[in-house]
């Protein structure tokens, strides 16, 4: 195995990890701030992918589709928080699990009703549809670099918002101590709605931007959801920094697992998770 091969796999792993981070960061914030275990978070990823696919067909431009699919995911997220999740804040975590499980069924079936059960490819924009040559016979698709770059920019933006703005201060307060949010006189309802909407938008963006690489297919949210839970737990529930490191770790474990131990690729991700939890039961940054 030569260096180039390793480099390509590492790039793929980091790209996958960054993508997972977009989804997982919302998941971890929603749990940390609102105490909600949102099983339907993967559905936002699927929603983003399918709206991007559909809008790209309608508008002929992936960029336009990407930009438009963001507010759609955010709106759906906001609506779900306001109409359903809000009724359950005082209930047991498991009731929220059950509710969001029900939502998964609804989303998955709605997807089939609207877009059917086929797998659809999403065309890459022509400008990005080329590969960067590495050696004589190895090259790296530029679109994957773009995905990584976009995700990295969003991650940086998130860091800036959380670390530097007033809204970010609420978020930090809420994630470290949920009761404190009420005590600080923050508009809790609005904060919760916004966090849920932003989480949904991030997941939607991830789905949309990944669509040209992954295609869109029924149930695509489920596997991402499980991986993101793995990420969140490894990183420490509620910690965005932890989600970032966890995502990169899982992205690399998954990618290298696939090439090094193809028979037990998926196994490797869960083995990493079990190992981390046995070492630090509350995750790396709890």
């Amino acid at each position: 195995m030569d260096v180039w091969f390793f480099l390509i796999q590492a790039l793929n792993g980091v790209q996958y990890g960054l993508l997972l981070f977009l989804v997982a960061s919302g998941l971890t914030l929603i749990f940390g701030i609102m105490g909600i275990i949102n099983l339907a978070h993967g559905s936002f990823y699927m929603l983003g992918a399918y709206t991007a696919y559909w809008l790209a067909l309608k508008t002929g431009s992936l960029l336009a589709a990407l930009v438009l699919s963001l507010p759609i995911a955010a709106l759906v997220g906001f609506g779900i928080e306001t109409l359903l999740v809000r009724a359950l804040y005082k209930r047991d975590h498991l009731d929220q699990v059950l509710l969001t499980y029900g939502l998964i069924l609804v989303f998955n079936e709605a997807q089939k009703l609207i877009w059917g059960s086929d797998v659809h490819a999403v065309a890459m924009p022509a400008v990005l549809n080329w590969s960067f040559p590495l050696t004589d016979n190895l090259s790296y698709p530029i679109y994957r670099l773009v995905i990584s770059a976009v995700c990295a920019v969003v991650a940086l933006g998130m860091w800036w918002v959380i670390a530097k703005t007033r809204f970010g201060m609420w978020v930090r307060a809420g994630a470290s101590n949920r009761e404190m949010v009420q005590a600080l006189g923050i508009n809790v309802k609005l904060l919760f709605g916004l966090v849920f909407a932003i989480g949904a938008a991030l997941a939607g963006l991830a789905g949309a931007i990944a669509a040209p690489v992954s295609s869109v297919y029924p149930g695509m949210g489920d596997s991402v959801l499980i991986l993101c839970f793995v990420v969140v737990v490894i990183g420490g529930v509620g910690s965005v920094k932890g989600a970032f490191l966890g995502a990169i770790l899982i992205g690399l474990a998954d990618t290298f697992g696939r090439v090094l131990v193809p028979d037990f690729a998926s196994f490797s991700v869960y083995a990493v998770m079990a190992a981390v939890l046995l070492w630090k039961p509350k995750g790396l940054f709890a």
Binding site: I37, V233, V237, G283
Partner: peptide, 27 residues
């Protein structure tokens, strides 16, 4: 191994072991 953790970590570690079982027979 699992009962060393509690709460959501317990949910997740049991999920992880479950998935390991799944992939063990799947792969």
């Amino acid at each position: 191994l699992s009962i060393r953790t509690t709460g959501i970590s317990f949910i997740m570690i049991t999920l992880a072991f479950g998935q390991m079982g799944f992939y063990f027979f799947n792969d």
